[in-house]
């Protein structure tokens, strides 16, 4: 067991590597989710009013 906060001179590199990874992966996930939500809402809005059925009915 080592102490998380005692990594000596390499600490910044380790934290940096994990930090960059976390930021990039979270950003990609959030961007994908939000884009999908926006697109789904737009599809709902554009869909012709006369048959407002969920997708299941189509197939």
């Amino acid at each position: 067991m080592t102490d998380l906060f005692d990594m000596g001179s390499v600490g910044p590199f380790v934290i940096g590597a994990y930090g960059v990874t976390a930021v990039a992966l979270v950003a990609l996930a959030v961007l994908s989710l939000r884009a999908n939500k926006a697109a789904a809402a737009e599809v709902e809005r554009m869909r012709p009013k006369r048959r407002r059925k969920p997708d299941e009915g189509d197939s």
């Binding site: 994908s32 989710l33 999908n36 697109a39 737009e42 599809v43 554009m46």
Partner: peptide
């Protein structure tokens, strides 16, 4: 999977 849904929605749009 979310990106697939996104692309499908874009295609529908």
């Amino acid at each position: 999977l979310y990106r697939m849904k996104l692309e499908i929605n874009r295609r529908k749009l």
